[in-house]
Design a protein around this nucleic acid. Sequence first.
DNA 1: AGCACGCCGACT
DNA 2: GTCGGCGTGCTC
Length: 739
Amino acid sequence: MATNDPGGGGGEDGQLAFGVEGARRAVRAARGRKPKAPAQAERLPVARVVVDKGLVHLDRLFDYSVPAKLAEQARPGVRVRVRFGAKVVDGRRRGGGLIDGVIVERVERSTYAGPLAPLASVVSPEIVLAPPMVELARAVADRYAGSLADIVQLALPARHARAEAESSGEPRVRPGPPAPGPWSRYPAGAAHLAALAAGESPRTVWTALPGPHWPDEIARALAATLAGGRGALAVVPDAKAVDRVDAALTALLGPGRHVALTAGLGPEERYRRWLAVNRGTVRAVVGTRAAMFAPVVELGLALVWNDGDDSHADQNAPHPHVREVLAMRAAREHAAFTVGGHSTTVEAAQLVRSGWARPLDADRAAVRAAAPLVRTVGSDLDLARDEAARAARLPSVAWDVARTALRGGPVLVQVPRRGYLVRTACRRCREPARCAHCSGPLELPSGDAVLTCGWCTRPAPNWHCRVCGGDRIRAGVIGARRTAEELGRAFPTVPVRTSGRDAILTTVPDLPALIIATPGAEPVAPSGYAAALLLDGWALLTRPDLRAGEEALRRWLDAASLVRPAGEGGTLVVVAESTLRPVQALVRWDPQGYALTELGERADLNLPPVSRMASVTGPPAGIADFLAVLRLPDGVDVLGPVPVAPTVARTPPPAPARPDPRAADTRAELTRALFGATPPAPAPARPAAEPPRHERVLLRIEPGRGAELAHALKAAQTLRLARGTADPVLIRVDPPDIG
DNA sequence: AGCACGCCGACT
DNA sequence: GTCGGCGTGCTC
């Protein structure tokens, strides 16, 4: 990297953009030191830098003077090293360590009154953060009440010098447009691909047909965009999905036209692929959530698959969500946008209802042709007569279906993940059974008949339901391992395999076998499962979460999509009451209808995504102080504060106040989710000693004014942090656990 | 977050 | 008289 120095290192006396430098020299001269002010760049001598310090109250650019030697290299978008945090004593800087930063722009003069420190060095000439990406990062930071530096850190992979030194190769000529392939099953499928190839930018909510074709469909949408001379980006929930789309892209385009970006790559390979994208050599990307910021040149399509999956919400503050970021990118970069999945999130339905996006669906006949036969069975009725099946708590319908299906191929059994176990509930109304003292979940220790609180360990021998007064309990669903054991006994001649959090199977052969999997960990069977049993019905549905229904339906549809079509004998058995709305939506295979109904309800209740919400969590003193400092715009609802369990150590919250007794059923349900929410988590073995108390306050603002709310929250946070704060609070825009 | 300045107690 | 407590404020 040659240093071009057009100034030839020459002096530039009198060209200074500010007079402070002169004063500095005077000081040095007075001390008898040789004035060694570095020669400054003649043109645009000030670099505005985003420094890699994720402190909200430092969320601004810092100006540095550009030494003449760096005049050419110090371009907007390059990584630099700067001294930061120094103190000026007698006109001299003291202290201040070297930290990383990126130049955002070069300007003629600084608005900063003090003396500017020089850029220490330019790390590399690579433009890693072009101005449009800065603007996107700024907008994302603003939306989520976070800092620019936070987003930049998410967006940029770690630099790797060796990868950078390599060539990324030459850009390839654009491929021809792909055949519609499986898209021909959708009335508007071929037209959609044609529009992408023609450089148009449709925004769609795509409800994918059940079955194994979605990776191919994603690949063809990306390929069509490439054919039109633009770049394309698909973000999927996990590495397994990346692999499938990756394979489909390779099959369609051959190697070298796309990259897969996943967290598991390792720094060098990750940076190598990212650079190939940044340099425009590769123009199609499939990846997991960090890829949402992939610097695809001339983005023509941004696609998110299965946006209800919680891995699409970033783990790091300020927790940007792939769907939201890609929608922002598509709007800013005039690209097409697709949110796709086997199910429809309420947020996606909102995009349709607001007119921002159009649905991209198959017709009913195509859905029926692709979907398995769906049967429902109430969970505690009609247990199989077979003794072993009875032990496994298999309803006879499920047992019969499995037995028959096992002659023709593998059978998937979806069981609840441990954390989703609802231990006990009222037999009559299904209200989760809660401790009268601390509202903790009541459990039935293995085989025992004594109800016990999972939080305070008090026994609850005389429990009665606080909603309907019932006094009969239904026992919780058992976990994956035991299910596997018991099913193994019920089907002694069939191999049983499990796939769960620790050991995930990717694929299973098309041979008779029982595959026990937790939601999201279902392996793919090449020709589809002969049947699937969804045993987790009411465990998923009784979670005290606003999204419980939507989430249950999503998981069922994802599992159901792995089953052969009804025409090939594919059958799905869901163990849940057939009267429940998510169950009906599954039977009718109508995710959009379900999402639209949910959306209507959210609108009635003024809940997200129809309103915008943010939560503030922390110790009561911090919350009180934060609220005192907070200057809210007009029309913000303040809900709470209410006690919550701190995120780390679970503590029993005081019995939640029953708000709004005039509420209708659903309303009570939702309100409970809001105020009495207890996210599923394993209970501690013993009650926590004296746990830190936390509170949460929810803030709600009307749609379209989220930015105002975020801005106010950030201002309050900045103010508190700037004056060195005890009792820090956490701000979360779009908190995940209320919906 | 660091880190330095600043204005009040126990030591050479 | 000074060394040093950590309260307050800034970082280009």
